[in-house]
Amino acid sequence: MESLDTVLAAHRSYLFGWNIGADGDPSLPTYRSEVPHATLNGVLRVAGPTPAEALAEARRRLRGVPRIWWVGPDSDAGTADGLVALGATEVARMPIMTMALAATAGTPTPAGVRISETDDLDAFVAAYARVSGIPPAGVPATVEREKAFDGDGTVIRLAGRRADGRIVGTAVAWLSHGLVTLYFVGTQPEQRRQGIGAAITRAALDLARERGAHTAALTSSPMAEAIYRRLGFRPVGEFRLLTF
Results as ranks from 00 to 15, higher is better:
Val143Arg: 06
Arg59Ile: 00
Glu34Met: 01
Arg192Thr: 02
Asp119His: 05
Gly197Trp: 08
Leu101Asp: 07
Val35Ser: 01
Arg59Cys: 05
Gly232Arg: 15
Asp25Lys: 08
Ala129Trp: 01
Arg162Asn: 13
Ile200His: 08
Asp150Cys: 15
Glu146Ala: 12
Thr187Ser: 03
Ala127Lys: 01
Pro49Asn: 13
Arg157Tyr: 12
Val155Glu: 12
Asn41Ala: 09
Ser27Asn: 11
Met94Gln: 15
Gln188Gly: 10
Arg161Pro: 14
Pro29Ser: 12
Pro36Ala: 09
Lys147Gln: 11
Ile134Asn: 08
Ala92Met: 13
Val35Pro: 00
Thr50Lys: 06
Thr50Ala: 09
Thr98Asp: 01
Leu179Glu: 03
Gly197Asp: 04
Ala224Ser: 08
Gly24Arg: 15
Leu218Ser: 13
Pro108Met: 13
Arg234Cys: 13
Arg157Asn: 15
Met99Ala: 03
Ala203Cys: 08
Ile227Pro: 08
Leu15Gln: 14
Leu205His: 13
Ala198Gly: 06
Leu83Asp: 01
Arg202Asp: 04
Met99Asp: 03
Thr142Phe: 05
Leu182Met: 05
Ile68Glu: 07
Asp25Tyr: 12
Ala204Leu: 00
Thr107Ser: 09
Ala224Asp: 02
Arg229Gln: 08
Arg67Thr: 04
Ser132Phe: 14
Glu146Asn: 15
Arg162Pro: 14
Ala171Tyr: 04
Thr170His: 05
Ala213Pro: 00
Phe184Gln: 02
Arg130Ala: 06
Ala199Ser: 07
Asp152Trp: 10
Thr154Gly: 11
Asp76Leu: 10
Val168Gln: 05
Val46Thr: 07
Val131Lys: 01
Val143Ile: 14
Val43Arg: 09
Gly165Glu: 12
Ser132Thr: 15
Leu175Cys: 06
Phe16Gly: 04
Ser132Lys: 02
Ser176Asn: 15
Leu62Glu: 10
Asn19Glu: 02
Glu90Val: 01
Pro136Trp: 06
Ile227Arg: 11
Ala77Met: 04
Gly237Phe: 06
Ala105Lys: 09
Tyr128Phe: 02
Leu158Arg: 04
Val143Cys: 11
Ala217Pro: 04
Arg202Tyr: 04
Pro140Val: 08
Trp174Val: 13
Ile96His: 14
Thr170Pro: 07
Leu15Thr: 11
Ala105Met: 00
Gly42Ile: 14
Met223Asn: 13
Pro222Gln: 09
Ala173Phe: 06
Glu2Asn: 02
Trp69Leu: 09
Ile196Trp: 03
Ser27Lys: 00
Val113Cys: 10
Phe244Asn: 03
Gln194Pro: 02
Leu121Thr: 10
Ala208Gly: 03
Tyr14Met: 14
Asp81Gly: 04
Ala77Asn: 12
Ala217Ile: 07
Gly151His: 15
Ile156Ala: 14
Ser3Asn: 00
Val7Lys: 01
Arg60Asp: 03
Ala173Glu: 10
Gln194Thr: 07
Pro26Phe: 00
Arg93Ile: 15
Thr79Asp: 09
Ser27Ala: 07
Ile200Ala: 02
Asp119Thr: 14
Asp76Phe: 13
Asp152Thr: 13
Tyr228His: 08
Ser27Tyr: 02
Ile167Ser: 05
Ala10Arg: 12
Val65Glu: 05
Pro108Ser: 05
Arg12Trp: 05
Ala80Thr: 11
Glu238Leu: 07
Leu83Tyr: 04
Ile134Cys: 08
Pro49Phe: 12
Arg12Gln: 10
Ile227Asn: 06
Arg161Asp: 14
Arg59Trp: 01
Gly169Met: 12
Ser33Pro: 01
Tyr228Trp: 09
